[in-house]
Design a protein around this nucleic acid. Sequence first.
DNA 1: CTCCGCAATCTTGTATGGTAGATGCTCCAC
DNA 2: GTGGAGCATCTACCATACAAGATTGCGGAG
Lengths: 224, 224
Amino acid sequence: MAQVLETNEETIALRVVRALRDEIVTMALRPGDVISESDIAGRYGVSRQPVREAFIRLAQQGLLLIRPKRATVVKKISPDGVRQSRFIRESIEVEIIRRVAAKPGKDALAVLNGLIADQEKASAANDRAAFHTLDELFHRTLARLAGVEYAWQLIDDHKIQLDRVRYLTLGVSSSQRAIAEHKEIAAAVGRADVAAAEQAMREHLERAEVLLAQTIEDFPDYFE
Amino acid sequence: MAQVLETNEETIALRVVRALRDEIVTMALRPGDVISESDIAGRYGVSRQPVREAFIRLAQQGLLLIRPKRATVVKKISPDGVRQSRFIRESIEVEIIRRVAAKPGKDALAVLNGLIADQEKASAANDRAAFHTLDELFHRTLARLAGVEYAWQLIDDHKIQLDRVRYLTLGVSSSQRAIAEHKEIAAAVGRADVAAAEQAMREHLERAEVLLAQTIEDFPDYFE
DNA sequence: CTCCGCAATCTTGTATGGTAGATGCTCCAC
DNA sequence: GTGGAGCATCTACCATACAAGATTGCGGAG
């Protein structure tokens, strides 16, 4: 059953990377699942070589665990790893919001409010995917405003672990609350109130903590 | 001239990764240098396959740039990338020092002072390598005391870019000053003075900024 | 002398076969 | 019935051959 991969991309290896990452984040491949080079190669109708290279990339991103000569498994989610990923994210985003609030560009507030308005539309339309994309864009935009967009890419890489958790809890998150918190952050930026902006951002990010605890209870097999 | 690699390590690919990273950081391979899989394979007396895998890993760490079907080059140092790496580092280390200073364990101060004492010895003996190792250990220990040692690994990955800069300026850095700053940080931790610790850490890390500007002037070819 | 085209020769990407280590099962000894 | 040795069969790792795009330089046309 050779699944079809988009054929207009660059290299086969990169297509496999994307396909596998997608399967992992959407839990089509679940934590603990055992896969093998030839297994995946057969499923996608390619040779083992590009699959192997994809494994290497995904292993470096912490999504796979290659056990030499034994097998390759989809890495279980490490609660402590998620905790520290959140720590990293909070450290950086707090510093970002400080900078933005300290010296807000003249169009900064307008851009942020525009994004929030879009989010409200997506929420009203119950378009969960669009909402999630916009939520990400809000934070990314802050990084851009602070002149450290590359730093966001780092957060994005680490966020994958949390995204797996998030996927397990679809429907739980309250978009209303997220919007309200975004508004509070934007308002603090508008007032150039650094302390308030920092505080609002910390509270906004802290919600992930309870989400994690709940998810561990619901899906203990997916955690180590 | 097949160079010899340590033979008791894990896989050939990992040995090549270590060897190449070392050559890059020590500027044996300089930014802009063009290398090829067969080139390196010949030099180390291995086949292209493990070299190729090493390239992939190093490219993901931002040390190499693989230009498909063209060549692979040692990435030039991106001033903005270094700037943002420093931003990331400062964000995380400031958050770390806040946590440590807010709740210093009872043996924390003793451990830190011990490390500082070792640094003074290394400095007196003019052992630059040992000093650098101890300097790194000081910061890593802080991460451990804050319970986020994994976060340090992240910093370590990004620090490689800055280490390349540092290697170009051997002899410039004043170890006396670094030791004094470490002492100030440790003292603030001892007093559980969060604000002072944060301030001291920021100043400590800010020194890298002038280092970068000076180095760009001295070695413009190594930067993009 | 200049410019265009083609071919030799680089490069990385992909496919495939073989190797060594790890695992698990079978079958025999007791 | 139980335990252990050995073999079948997995795995990831490595080597090698081939493919295809990119570059370079040479030679001929103008």
